[in-house]
């Protein structure tokens, strides 16, 4: 089976689910109308449920965490319930085999009942046993990827209010701060000695990045540096749209300057091994390296209002 196509993955997933359902509906219709075989409601419902389970468990790569699959599966079950019970006719049809197993007096239902009476308690106790078995897995940690920043941060004796501060190195030709300068120069050559101040800042930021940051954050800025897998969680992947692209530049400035130890208490545990770079870099160097990271990933920093 072909894998997921880079860049189209969310849409592809939706299309695949749609395809499965279309096949399912068409199949049931053909069986019913053309061949006269009507699949019982209960079986239809069970098939949809299993198909959903199969899709999320085996089709999606890398594997989804259990918690997400559980949410999905509950949603699918609710959807199935809504579908089978939306009209009285279907609901009666759906219930019939279940009620028959509970109370009808044919030999078949008697046997099914007898088997269930044994299997249900056994599987319940099996689940209970499995749950109670001590496991060596690490406990789940609730990790907030982007903690709430302070209102202002003091770096090297200077106070930066995060809401209003601007990067002093994101400047256009006139030396003024510019939101759009990156877009215009995202394909420029940073090693061009005649380039504008902005590109020189990017280049210097790159130097700093490769002297300090790339060991962990990787030379593609994808969080897969030389030492990345020594950490848990692994370092932030800047190419992921969920990191730099979502954040204001000042937020990143706070995180770089204060590192793991500067994270707020309220959302412990953070488990970040990043050092507070203010102890090693000057304020301007921090701004430059952030400038480089945005330039390299081509994401503009988040802004709230124009």
């Amino acid at each position: 089976m072909p894998g997921f196509i880079e860049g189209m993955m969310p849409v592809q997933l939706l299309a695949e689910i749609l395809l499965i359902i279309v096949i399912f509906v068409l199949g049931a219709m053909i069986l019913d109308k053309k061949m006269g075989i009507r699949i019982p409601m209960l079986l239809q419902a069970a098939l949809v449920f299993i198909a959903g389970w199969w899709y999320y468990k085996f089709r999606i790569e890398p594997p989804l965490p259990f918690s997400v699959r559980a949410i999905y599966q509950v949603m699918i079950a609710i959807g199935i319930f809504m579908w089978v019970s939306s009209a009285e006719k279907g609901w009666t049809e759906f219930k019939r085999p279940i009620l028959a197993v509970l109370d009808a007096k044919t030999p078949l239902t008697w046997w099914v009942r007898a088997v269930l009476l044994v299997v249900l308690p056994l599987s319940a106790s099996g689940m209970a046993y499995k749950n109670l078995l001590p496991s060596l897995g690490e406990p789940i940690e609730l990790r907030t990827v982007h903690p709430a920043p302070p209102a202002a941060v003091t770096v090297h004796g200077k106070k930066f209010p995060l809401q209003t501060s601007e990067s002093p190195v994101r400047v256009d030709e006139s030396g003024e701060y510019s939101n759009h300068i990156q877009d215009a120069h995202v394909m420029d050559n940073p090693f061009d000695p005649d380039s504008i101040q902005y590109m020189q800042n990017v280049k210097e930021g790159g130097d700093i990045f490769f002297q300090n940051c790339h060991f962990c954050h990787g030379d593609n800025l994808n969080g897969r540096g030389l030492y990345a897998y020594a950490f848990n969680p692994i370092p932030a992947n800047f190419t992921d749209p969920g990191t730099l692209a979502q954040l204001q530049e000042t937020f990143v400035f706070w995180r770089v300057a204060k590192g793991g130890p500067g994270l707020p208490r309220e959302g412990f545990p953070w488990a970040s091994a990043m050092p507070p770079w203010e102890q090693h870099l000057t304020t301007e160097e921090i701004w430059k390296v952030i400038l480089f990271e945005y330039w390299h990933t081509k994401y503009p920093p988040r802004t709230w209002d124009e």
């Binding site: 594997p63 965490p65 997400v68 406990p139 848990n232």
Partner: peptide, 10 residues
């Protein structure tokens, strides 16, 4: 947005 998972799943 932030998934709950064990470190193994992570």
């Amino acid at each position: 947005h932030t998934m709950v998972m064990t470190p193994t799943e992570l």
